[in-house]
Design a protein around this nucleic acid. Sequence first.
RNA 1: GGGCUCGUAGUCUAGUGGUUAUGACGCCGCCCUUACAAGGCGGAGAUCGGCGGUUCAAUUCCGCCCGAGCCCACCA
Length: 788
Amino acid sequence: MTMDKRYNVEETEKKWAKKWVENKTYEFVETKKNYVIDSPPPYPYVSLHAGNFFNFAYQDFVARYKRLRGFSVLHPWGWDCHGLPAEIFIEKKYGKTAEKIGIEAFKELCEKHILENIENIRENQAQVIGMSVDWSKQYATMTDDYKTRVQKSFLEMVKKKYVYRKEAPVSWCVSCHTAIAEAQTDKIERETNFYHINLPLKNKKGSITIATTRPELMPSCVAVFVNPKDERYKEFIGEIVKIPFFGQEVKIIADEKADPEFGTGAVYHCTFGDKTDWEWVVKHKLPIIKSIEENGKLNENTKFLKDLTVIQARKKIVEKLEKEGLLFETKKTNQTINSCERCKTPLEILIKKQWFFATTKLVKEIAEASDKMKWHPSFAKQRLLDWNNNVAWDWVISRQRYWATPFPVWYCEKCDETIFANEKELPINPSKKIKKCKCGKNALPETDVMDTWMDSSISAHHVSQWLSKERKNRLSDLRSQGEEITKTWLFYTIARCLAYKKKLPFTDVLINGMVQGTDGKKMAKRSTNMILPEELFKKYSVDAYRQWVGKSMPGEAWPINPSEMEYSQKFLTKIWNTSRFIEQHLKNGKPKLDNFADKWIMNTYHALISKVTKHMDSFEWGLSLESLRNFLWHEFADYYLEMIKYRIYNNTKNSDESKKVLKTILSGTLRMLSPFTPFITEEIWNNLYNEESIHHQKWPKTEDSDEKILKQGDDLKTFISALRTWKTNNKLGLGKELSNVVIYASKKNVEHFTDDLKGTMRIKELTIEEKTAGTRINEKFGFSVHKV
RNA sequence: GGGCUCGUAGUCUAGUGGUUAUGACGCCGCCCUUACAAGGCGGAGAUCGGCGGUUCAAUUCCGCCCGAGCCCACCA
């Protein structure tokens, strides 16, 4: 087959994306040398975003590289189906909620939508970018086998006491009606009123002025705190305050955490304003007075505020305080509050019975595990450790929602006994099965469901099922993910696998940075810097997009760069044309290296293999791709091809050897490029070598390169460059013949390449003189053109 | 406020304790040389963020400062 004059990008990329799937090119066949990738299962209810594609390219670089290095690569694909974001999406799209149409009907709707969308995303997005995935190893977290695995691990961890249920403060979204994990909270900054309120002392005259943004929590006040070093309040410590309207008598307590600089320096402590409040409850053994209910309204403890929302209650109590003359001052202040990541409603802290995963118990183990892993880049580890060391509360794993994996649990309506499902019953929806307690009474199903991260944090365990035997110390080899989910997916996975299996989930962690817009800011859906990857595939090509990703380094923020993609696109043309040239001069066999140019380029090529191999092994994409491109374009094409044309066109001495060199180097370079640009390399391979897929070939072997020859090659290039400059300055075409040229150099430095220089620069007669004269090039060399 | 990363021609970027600091885009000039004008060749363009320190020698190592990005904490 003769290669077309132009590379038809669109057609070729479409063709191979389809063929690879049809031919099962990336099928996993287990051998002794397996490489397992724990890849991030994307959300299948919406289209993939720029961050997904960036990460996909990262995984795929590794998968393809390891395959060439002789590993059987298990590169599966998962879909992370459950969760609140999915519910919100479905509610909006179909205008139906679980409350309106019933939980089961709503779940069916979710499942139907997701099934349809999975097909769509796989064909139109995932396969388009050429993921080298074994599509028979596809999993979805909503299927029975996955849910079984999640429930089984839950039961196991209950046994091992890593999972427990207790009353504890949780961040609660009154709008989504669910507890929210720390990781799923958002900060919003807003201006609010800072109320300075006088609280009268019980046993003394006078009052203490506290500052609060939450006056409506006054019915829940159980203490007042001041800093022990605060001179203003020294005499108040130990005094009793009588709370207006509600009548509690609370103590004034000294605690370091009360900041003298903030507000009035005196804080009234309520159930619950913030995290410090919980610490104080525990430390000072304070009572709890609930005042806010799940729906966000105040309860009977709040007397005249009952049934009001937080906002309404605040207004009412402020009015009352003003009337009674207890409101000392109202100031504006800027405040950052925790809000629900999805609906932005400010979160309340409530006391609830929830299921918890004991992440705080695992802090040490997680740190030790992270020491056993190789981190790319190394600073990514610090991010995880920072988070690990700062986790204050255990992970709340229950959600008061619907579309998620159910807890396989019932509670006795009488004796409060917890009843767990048998392993054989899994997966189970407790609402669909009646259980009896051993006391004979009925048991009620748990209606809470699991946090979605409970599903995805055992992905490493799930993918390990495709190995005939689970490995001893680790479940998979590589985790490739974005830095933004360090504190969730990465942290939870390590914690879960340690708690459940006492195994490392993986040994290598590859972190990709954030995709930025052309403005250097994080690319966000709602921001104007948003560019869809699909637009880039269309405007440039997938291979160009993948090169843009390939130019990045692990952990680095990476801005969309159109000029980089244009360059990448041109590089594809360069590969294509270089290959077309070689196609005309194909010659098989191992070259015999008599000619200097041949020796030089082969040595350069060997140095390249070593360099690229080293970089690929440490996932340094940018350096690998850079070296490959520079070699192919600026050494191989710009110099070597020009150096040998005179021989292969005239069929002179050694021309066949050069042709063998051409084929050898192109073949190896294509293979090394194939992880980055799988489409064009496959197409050329198919045209030129007509063998099996390039993606089933072997990575080129590293061989020693001779430093001396590389240096001599530089000298030859120096002469070529100098003569090119001379021709340009004298307005001569580069093809113009020069009849007589003298070069000044010591003979031993140049004699090995004079034939190459003559041929490349079309010099008829070339003489060497030891004495430096004529146009000086550098310390060693000079030249003069005597006759054109 | 804390942590991490980064700062190299107009723009993006490689790299290094020691010759003339890499490559690309853009700009200028020459050339349709039988792979390629989506190209080739050549040229101009950088006090390597600033200030100190270590050193015979710093763009490179250290400290401080300034600027950018991301993450965390910003509370009553």
